[in-house]
Amino acid sequence: MDYVKQHAVKPGDKIQLKRIDTKSKGPFAGKDEAKAFTAETVKKLQDLQYRLFVEGKQSLLIVLQAPDAAGKDGLIRKVLGQMNPQGCRTYPFKVPSAEEASHDFLWRIHKCTPAKGRISIFNRSHYEDVLVVRVNDLVPKKVWSRRYELINHFEENLIAAGTRILKFYLHISPEEQLERFKKRLDNPAKHWKLNTGDYAARNQWDEYREAYEDAMTRCNSDSSPWFVIPADNKWYRDAAVAGIVEQAMSEMNPQMPPIEVDLDEIRALYEQASAKMQR
């Protein structure tokens, strides 16, 4: 299955989330088949990330946005977080600190973009400043409405510097979200996730949907694409994102650097060291 073609938002299209299924199972007969695909794909991601790190010429930025309980943390834990943390880091963006709020809205974001050879995963991102800020009237419309253009320039700058960008919206239904809220409530190990603000956001579901639709429509291009991932089935969410990231990294085609040492000399030194150990 071509997950990129299936879930990419076409540049120029006005996206309508209501028309996109949240319960897709894709090509899989069920959970076990999807999990097997994800496990195999994660192995490929680990190899590609190793080559990317050693090559040191390109970088990858993965942006995750979603309503509460759509599974950003689970996706990171099961799929994206399986890559070597030496070259792959996750950055959760919460409410800005006093210092962060005293700078422009991209200041805290830019510091976390990936260096060459690295991967950055954003758990929420700069898009919060045209989502939460917009829905909750935290700044005037004349302020947040200019940010779409600033975000586009910011991402174009990263691309020009050799960063590949993949942006994922995890598309969950309000019914599934409420069921997951219940599971959190019933599980003491997840009580730390409970937040009255999650329920307040449910009352603004339509406003958030409109804000997401505008962000994905206005900040979308072939080189910085958005993907809408059906997320009611966690196992399909994981498989689809894994498939898209693997395809993108394969297209990046990171190469191992050329050998700059004399292998015969190194082998001779090894043989000498080995011989000394045996004496």
Score class of each variant (00 low, 15 high):
residue 30 G to K: 12
residue 128 E to R: 10
residue 133 V to T: 14
residue 40 E to Y: 10
residue 196 T to A: 13
residue 85 P to N: 04
residue 266 I to N: 12
residue 185 L to N: 04
residue 54 V to W: 07
residue 119 I to M: 04
residue 49 Q to R: 03
residue 143 V to M: 10
residue 114 P to A: 06
residue 223 S to M: 00
residue 196 T to W: 14
residue 58 Q to N: 07
residue 206 D to A: 13
residue 214 D to I: 06
residue 113 T to G: 11
residue 89 R to V: 01
residue 84 N to E: 08
residue 83 M to W: 05
residue 26 G to R: 02
residue 97 S to E: 12
residue 58 Q to H: 03
residue 112 C to E: 14
residue 78 K to R: 07
residue 240 A to E: 06
residue 230 P to A: 01
residue 196 T to L: 12
residue 273 A to R: 10
residue 257 P to K: 05
residue 216 M to P: 01
residue 244 I to N: 07
residue 88 C to S: 13
residue 228 V to Q: 03
residue 20 I to Y: 09
residue 31 K to M: 11
residue 81 G to D: 02
residue 232 D to S: 05
residue 115 A to T: 07
residue 68 D to G: 00
residue 140 P to A: 13
residue 20 I to T: 05
residue 225 P to S: 14
residue 276 K to F: 01
residue 157 N to R: 12
residue 65 Q to F: 12
residue 206 D to F: 13
residue 258 P to K: 08
residue 86 Q to F: 14
residue 150 L to S: 11
residue 41 T to W: 02
residue 95 V to K: 08
residue 148 Y to F: 15
residue 97 S to Q: 07
residue 248 A to K: 07
residue 167 K to P: 05
residue 124 R to H: 09
residue 138 L to P: 01
residue 170 L to M: 04
residue 26 G to Q: 00
residue 192 W to E: 03
residue 18 K to T: 12
residue 79 V to T: 08
residue 97 S to V: 03
residue 269 L to K: 07
residue 47 D to S: 11
residue 238 D to N: 00
residue 267 R to S: 10
residue 222 D to Q: 05
residue 223 S to I: 12
residue 226 W to N: 03
residue 27 P to A: 10
residue 89 R to H: 14
residue 235 W to G: 02
